[in-house]
């Protein structure tokens, strides 16, 4: 019931920016235009829906497609006990999206992770540096064009007899 409500409300509030609403395996998926992220996030965070928890934030690399990167956001509303998934596409050349750090504090690390692994820039992020990999590491390991076994050692490795 609430699910329909929120989807209707989103459609009403952002008629231009919401591009597609579909459903799969029992989950609703809302696709939106990347420029509207902050507005939609604020709308979800506020009353009456109170999707106050940024559950997860990640990226999928669709190599070979024009809009290569797909950002995936999961929100949780504790009062409604409901999850919602939002998706948006970013172009291959200089992928950029607004940062959610102004609303959710855990977005800080999550976005650093996506920056580290996929090379996506977040506008307005206070401290956008690598989180898992080290300084001097070249490339973004979770991109599909990064080879699985390409290692970049930090120190000289010993030779084995």
């Amino acid at each position: 019931m609430e699910k329909k409500n929120i989807i209707e409300a989103l459609r009403k509030k952002f008629p231009e920016q919401i591009m597609d609403i579909s459903s799969q395996f029992g989950d609703e998926i809302i696709t939106f235009e990347s420029s509207a992220l902050l507005d939609i996030a604020n709308f979800l965070n506020d009353k009456p829906y109170e999707y106050t928890m940024l559950l997860d934030l990640t990226c999928v690399d669709y190599k070979g497609e024009d809009q290569r990167f797909e950002m995936v956001y999961h929100f949780l509303s504790l009062s409604l006990n409901d999850r919602i998934r939002l998706k948006t596409r970013l172009p291959e050349k200089s992928p950029k999206i607004d940062s959610l750090t102004s609303i959710w504090k855990n977005a800080n690390w999550l976005e650093r992770e996506v920056y580290d692994m996929f090379g996506i820039h977040f506008n307005g992020h206070p401290y956008l540096i690598r989180i898992f990999m080290y300084e001097g590491f070249e490339g973004h390991p979770l991109r599909k064009d990064y080879p699985l076994r390409k290692q970049q050692p930090r120190i000289r490795l010993r030779k084995l007899e």
């Binding site: 989180i131 898992f132 990999m133 080290y134 390991p141 979770l142 990064y146 699985l148």
Partner: peptide, 11 residues
């Protein structure tokens, strides 16, 4: 952090 980043997702 990241001292135990073992590339789980990629693997």
């Amino acid at each position: 952090i990241g001292y135990l980043h073992r590339g789980l997702e990629k693997t």
